[in-house]
């Protein structure tokens, strides 16, 4: 969809993408910010409103389609990727968006998430990761840290969490990116990049659930700490962060570590980001949950690979061109036949 011509598209505004439904997330929920950024971005992507479909599963985040004045389908728990696959295959001209959460997309719907990624169907997945179950009122999720004390784990959770970008890369994803709910501009640009990518785009959005897991990402959003904890990735640029960009990621025998730019280290020692390099993306994905390393946001990985529905359309056109006389009567009467007078 990304390359669709912008000619003839009436210029829409954020308001055109807001439905008349009252938004019912808890006041202060990170979902509000994400909704706003999506509504702000969509007028600029060059797709007619009627060609946009939001598909969601179940969970707080999955109420999203109700608030968008586009086509929307609020489905059942975990199945949005599979439903969206059918939508996109049936009509490849549509711009299809999946809104899901860490429970919906990685737990009950984990199977569909990994399979849509491997197929590379051209849809955009927005995975709101708040590392908790909100709608069912506060159980730990598959991205909660080990030992998470929650309603269902009073003595701490026992299962190790998923690492979403690593999971996506392991599923052969062709686009993996991360953004943070309250960081409006970078989030907008990631939404745009996800839209532009042909193939399945996997955008993990760190989202604060202030009711059940408040502060999960405060170290990444707090003005005092965020410069030292967030690494903004830019293709072709060294991985610098911190105040005045004085910190950088150095790869010492395949092991990433943070170094200070100064006497011992210069900018030229710093690892340069390359979106098309799976090894670099893989290393970056394993920064997740590491306290000694910054949290990468931006595009970790973006490559062009064949798109599922393109290949399907090609196979069909080929079959059609090989069988000029494909008509129903000849199919009905194919095989050995005989006539009874």
């Amino acid at each position: 969809m990304g390359d669709k011509s912008m000619v003839n598209v009436k210029k829409l505004t954020r308001k055109d993408f807001s439905s008349d439904q009252m938004v019912r997330w808890c006041p202060g929920c990170g979902d509000y910010s994400i909704l706003a950024q999506v509504q702000k971005t969509l007028p600029d992507i060059g797709v007619e409103k009627e060609n946009i479909v939001f598909v969601s599963g179940i969970g707080c985040s999955s109420r999203f389609p109700y608030y968008m004045n586009t086509y929307g389908f609020h489905t059942i728990h975990g199945r949005a990727p599979a439903i969206a696959s059918g939508v996109k295959i049936a009509n490849p001209d549509l711009s299809v968006w999946i809104v899901t959460g860490d429970g919906d997309g990685l737990s009950i719907g984990g199977n569909h998430t990994i399979h849509i990624l491997r197929r590379n169907i051209d849809v955009n997945i927005l995975l709101f990761n708040n590392r908790i179950y909100g709608l069912t009122k506060g159980q730990y999720s598959p991205t909660s840290e080990l030992g998470k004390v929650s309603k269902s784990t009073p003595m701490g959770s026992l299962d190790r969490p998923f690492n979403p970008p690593a999971l996506a890369l392991g599923s052969q994803a062709t686009f993996v990116a991360r953004a943070i709910d309250v960081d409006g501009k970078p989030l907008q640009s990631m939404i745009r990049r996800a839209q532009e990518h042909r193939g399945t785009s996997f955008l993990e959005i760190y989202q604060n659930c202030l009711i059940f897991n408040d502060g999960a990402y405060s170290h990444l959003t707090d003005k005092k700490t965020k410069e030292d904890t967030v690494l903004h990735l830019e293709h072709g640029k060294p991985m610098l962060f911190g105040k005045d960009k004085k910190k950088g990621v150095f790869l010492s025998k395949n092991t990433p570590k943070v170094v200070e730019i100064g006497e011992q280290w210069s900018e030229s020692d710093i690892l340069v980001h390359n979106e098309k390099d799976w090894i670099i993306a893989s290393i970056l994905s394993h920064f997740t949950y590491r306290e000694d390393l910054p949290t990468p946001v931006g595009v970790l990985y973006a490559v062009d690979e064949p798109v599922y529905e393109d290949m399907m359309v090609d196979q069909i056109s080929h079959a059609v061109s090989q069988n000029q006389k494909a008509d129903l009567n000849s199919l009905l009467g194919s095989g050995d036949t005989w006539t009874v007078e």
Binding site: V53, F73, A82, S85, A90, N91, H112, H115
Partner: peptide, 21 residues
Amino acid sequence: FQAEDEIAGIASTIGAAYAGS
């Protein structure tokens, strides 16, 4: 569409029907 499981089988069918197939 050979789906990843029975649920995705019907889910994709629902999606395709929703889109007009």
